[in-house]
Design a protein around this nucleic acid. Structure first.
Length: 663
DNA sequence: ATTAGGG
DNA sequence: CCCTAAT
């Protein structure tokens, strides 16, 4: 928690977030879900994955940073796969307009500890601010070994706003590199269609975006310490696939912005945030992401709305095999209690700097990251290239909003960042194969089932320039979509304004409650912590290897509440399954139990004074309806009788409160 | 698989 | 939201 706070503070406005993760929820999902699942396939965006990987590295490095700076690089693959609507498998085929991209895959990225990294690359440990560089990685290509501290993110087209935060004290000045991430949409250059999947080359961008991430250079002692690595390969795609919702099929949302592949934006991050915690221990991935966040934050232009979806039925299965893990090392398994000394001895070169290093290092090779579901909507006439750009934009938007990395073990999110890997069950003995990482936007709106809200507008920088290359032509169509701009407007004034906006602005706090936990999602392997942790008996609750995680909190939106109220008015309480079917058929993350619980809370909320209510305010009229319906159904033991009659009666009730009418 | 309730 | 018990 502490950390959480810390983070928030740092970020200034960024909230933490809600994490959109794949909902584990699925406790019971009806066939409906299955259907969805089937329909949806994963579409990987490598970018995100790459970024995520980067982040991870970074975070690690940052952790290390205290001691020294680590460098990590991320590679970003460019191509994302999009599935056809029906296609089940990921294919690299061209996409349909409507296809939903569920996830992006990233080539494997190997993340090494900072330490390792630092060692490897030798960047000067001192002084430089590490930067994350994301280079593109081709699929298949494997690991990035290099770790440089720089991350580069290039956004094509995006204009760079310059965000500069002054380099913080940290110093980075020059040192901090700005990251350029270049994600070049390959497509741009090439024929869109053809490229679909494979293409991508990374573009180098000259680009521009730089993110200086990091903190002061610190001694690299730290680095030295760890050597053991466990590799974890992630293979899952699905685990969290965010499905497209069935109904929607379409992707909603982003305003397409065309951009040229070449352009890049540069931004500077404030170094401040990048600082790593002084101690290695705490260091969490989060920081990294946050840093990024701050970095991007400025680009408010674009909003991507995300929905998190769940992979319904399969969820569990998926969870089961998200990762492939290879063990490099010996130690991890033992880690639990092994004595430090012993380990140390085991690790050769290892520990120079730290004495503590007892545990072995865990090396993670992340093949892909699951990205939250993105909804984008473009005209059918748009080109593939444009689509790609749109997707990219959406992705970058998300990134801009701040990305967080979540760790999922056996389908459960590991939220406690303070937990050691061992405690979390991430060790050889445990189920490494069930380990997964997710990228989570920091700001997200829980999607509601309501479509109307869904559309997101992405405000974008008007000024952005788009190259006028041949490609540009393509854009044209895409751009046309940009006509959607209005959408943006819509967003602002949208009905729900509160929601979307709030989501952005409101940070984390609220959402966080339940969900924020992510902030601690990644547990860096910290030798020191390990030790200390080792002393502590493992929490009985968590079996080794398994971390139980609560579902992410997804506050009901007003529209959802409205739908719920409506359904209950008509169906009565006690028929949650029906309510679910009737009003939340497409909301995979809302189980009937959730609806029941929500109703319970609504009744309570309606009973208390407005001052005592928390969270997103529910319109009083809705609350009145809640009370009316509750009252009504309490009197009419409805359970058995509902049906038509109910409607009538309700109306009567309404009269009383005057609200019922709705639908 | 649902429902009801407590935590 | 989770968990459990009872259906």
């Amino acid at each position: 928690m502490v950390s959480k706070k810390r983070l928030n503070d740092n970020f200034n406005g960024f909230q933490v977030p809600v994490v959109p993760r794949a909902p584990r929820s699925i406790r019971r999902k009806g066939r409906t879900y299955k259907k969805l699942v089937e329909d949806n396939e994963l579409c990987p965006f490598e970018l995100l994955a790459a970024v995520a990987g980067k982040l991870l590295q970074e975070s690690e490095s940052s952790a290390c940073s205290n001691a020294g700076e680590g460098k990590g690089q991320l590679g970003i693959g460019q191509y994302g796969l999009v599935k056809g609507q029906h296609g089940n498998h990921l294919k690299s085929e061209g996409f349909d307009h409507r296809s939903c991209a569920e996830s992006a895959f990233v080539p494997e990225v190997e993340v090494q500890d900072c330490n390792l990294l630092s060692n490897l690359e030798g960047f000067p440990s001192e002084g430089n601010a590490p930067i994350l560089e994301c280079s593109s990685v081709l699929a298949g290509s494997g690991l990035l070994k290099n770790v440089n501290s720089d991350i580069k993110l290039g956004f094509n087209e995006v204009k760079a706003d310059k965000m500069e935060n002054g380099p913080e004290s940290q110093s980075d000045d020059n040192k901090n590199h700005i990251n350029d991430v270049s994600v070049a949409p390959t497509s741009i250059v090439k024929d869109p269609i053809a490229e679909s999947v494979n293409t991508d080359v990374l573009v180098n961008a000259d680009s521009n975006v730089q993110l200086p991430l990091y903190r002061d250079p610190i001694a690299g002692d730290f680095l030295n310490n760890h050597w053991n690595n466990v590799k974890l390969g992630n293979s899952d795609d699905d685990e969290y696939s965010f499905g497209c919702s069935k109904s929607s099929t379409k992707i909603r949302s982003f305003r397409p912005q065309p951009w040229s592949g070449n352009r890049r934006i540069r931004k500077i991050l404030a170094s401040k945030y990048w600082k790593a915690s002084p101690k290695l221990k705490d260091y969490d991935v989060y920081n990294t992401s946050e840093r990024l966040t701050s970095f991007y934050r400025y680009r408010k232009n674009i909003y991507a709305r995300e929905r998190y979806q769940r992979a319904p039925i399969k969820k569990r299965k998926l969870y089961g095999h998200p990762f492939t893990i290879a063990y490099d090392q010996e130690a991890s398994g033992e880690s639990t209690s092994s004595s430090p000394d012993k380990r140390a001895s085991e690790l050769p070169a290892t520990v120079k700097g730290h004495q503590k290093v007892k545990d072995s290092r865990v090396k993670f090779s992340i093949k892909s990251f699951r990205v939250p579901e993105l909804y984008i909507e473009v005209p059918e006439t748009t080109t593939v290239g444009s689509l790609k750009r749109t997707v990219l934009k959406a992705v970058t938007t998300i990134l801009g909003g701040g990305i967080r990395v979540g760790v999922v073990l056996q389908g459960k999110k590991v939220r406690d960042e303070n937990r050691t890997l061992q405690q979390a069950g991430i060790s050889e003995s445990c189920n490494l194969d069930t380990l997964g990482f997710t990228l989570e936007p920091s700001f997200t709106n829980p999607s509601s089932m309501t479509p109307k809200k869904l559309p997101l507008a992405l405000p974008y920088d008007a000024d952005q320039q788009f190259p006028r290359s041949p490609i540009t032509a393509d854009f044209g169509s895409g751009i046309s979509s940009s006509s959607d701009i209005p959408v943006v407007t819509k967003l602002d004034s949208s009905v729900d304004n509160r929601k979307p906006i709030s989501s952005l602005e409101t940070p984390t706090n609220e959402l966080t409650d339940g969900s924020s936990p992510d902030s601690k999602a990644l547990v860096p392997v910290d030798p020191m912590n390990v030790e200390s942790l080792a002393l502590v008996p493992v929490d009985p609750k968590h079996k080794r290897g398994e971390v139980s995680q609560r579902r992410t909190r997804r506050p009901f939106s007003v529209s959802e509440v409205e739908a719920l109220v409506e359904a209950v008015e008509n169906l009565g309480t006690g028929r949650w399954r029906d309510v679910k079917k009737r009003a939340f058929e497409n909301a995979d993350h809302r189980t009937y139990v959730d609806l029941k619980d929500k109703w319970k809370t609504l009744v309570h909320t309606a009973s208390i004074s407005p001052q005592q209510r928390r969270g997103e305010p529910v319109p009083q009229d809705l609350l009145n309806r809640v009370l009316s319906a509750h009252s009504y159904w309490s009197q009419h033991q409805c359970k058995q009788q509902h049906g038509k009659n109910s409607v009538e009666r309700l109306k009567i009730v309404d009269g009383v409160h005057g609200e019922m009418v709705g639908a």
